[in-house]
């Protein structure tokens, strides 16, 4: 997957860098990076439940922040481990809108090799910027 964890940042927490050719790809990669902290082998999560997410923000990076927070929220509030099925991000004069369909299943410690709980997405060093290949996102997750 187009993400890697950064060892040198925020000692007790987990930092990652995700990349993508467009906004949808970098958002998807960032979501996978967040999920993979909480569960090993996320590809083994069965896609049996679907959740629609709609978000709006005036800033690209804060839209990503809202999106990752939504995943953390759904993990606690509905016990769901979710991956991106499809996503569309539109940029207009008023700002940005995101419509995504997520799929996955309810968290089951007997089935899923769990990792560390993600408490929150922090804004420390949080960034979404253009890169040679498209976009690059950096985030520090509170563990």
């Amino acid at each position: 997957m187009p993400y890697r964890y950064l060892d040198e940042i925020a000692t007790a927490d987990v930092a990652f860098e995700a990349t993508g050719g467009n906004l949808e790809e970098v958002f998807t990669a960032a979501a996978e990076a967040t999920l993979n902290v909480m569960v090993d082998e996320p590809e083994r999560i069965e896609r049996v439940m679907r959740v629609a997410v709609k978000l709006e923000n005036t800033d690209r990076d804060m839209l990503l922040y809202d999106f990752l927070n939504e995943l953390v929220y759904l993990k606690d509030a509905r016990k769901l481990l979710l991956r991106v099925e499809n996503m569309e991000i539109k940029e207009g004069a008023e700002g940005l809108s995101l419509v995504a369909e997520l799929s996955g299943e309810e968290l089951d410690p007997a089935k899923h090799p769990l990792g560390a709980d993600v408490k929150a997405v922090t804004l420390h060093m949080f960034s979404l910027e253009r890169a040679d290949s498209g976009w690059k996102a950096t985030a520090v997750l509170d563990i």
């Binding site: 940042i9 000692t11 007790a12 927490d13 922090t122």
Partner: peptide
């Protein structure tokens, strides 16, 4: 103390 987010830990 160590590197945290916002404040150091």
């Amino acid at each position: 103390g160590h590197w945290g987010y916002g404040f150091p830990i």
